[in-house]
Amino acid sequence: MSLSTMLASMGEGMLRTCLIFFLTLLFSLPLGMVIMFMRRSRILLIRGIAHILIAVLRGTPLMLQLLMWYFGPFYLFGWSIRGYRFTAIILGFSINYAAYFAEIYRGGFESISKGQYEAAEILGYSRVQTFFKIILPQVIKTILPSVTNEIITLVKDTSLAFTLAYNEMFSLAKQIAASQTSFMPFIIAGVFYFVANYAVAFGMERVEKALDYYH
């Protein structure tokens, strides 16, 4: 098998990897905000639920969570859902990452001084204005480095989708490596992850620079 055919057959896997990556970010970034608000809720029950949820999601392997999402409906309820594999992957990834993002957000919000809220209140800003104009921009700046770390971890974690026999790039690399008795697919995979993470780091650094005008 030539290098170009190898690349071609891995290409589709790369697309799938990218799809997992972007869909996970799309769902987990806002979902993390929801969990963070639950975590900071005034109602003890909601706070408790969020606390346990975060503890379980961060305290168990993502691989196990993926298996739970995929096989859970069948073993727990006897449901077999057609074409569920991809949904299970996105569910597992998004909810797991949302828990990590929730904790990052929480740290960000707690770093904002009470004085910012009070100044906004005295000046007459509504609660919505205070949140979006005053608080959130400062939170985003403080959490950016931690979010970058998490996104880089996600790039590498996408390979865990192989657990559910989903043919993303890493699974394909293993298959081709076995059938062709070649080491090349692993090198291609490594280069792919590296380049992707380099792009993420580069992009995030630009954003951090853009917010560097104050501290």
């Binding site: 001084s113 005295i122 400062q138 700046k141 104050y214």
Partner: peptide
């Protein structure tokens, strides 16, 4: 009707 100036200024840094 009122404004308040804080000890710690509480300007919006951004």
């Amino acid at each position: 009707y009122f404004g308040l100036v804080f000890q710690q200024f509480n300007l919006f840094p951004h």
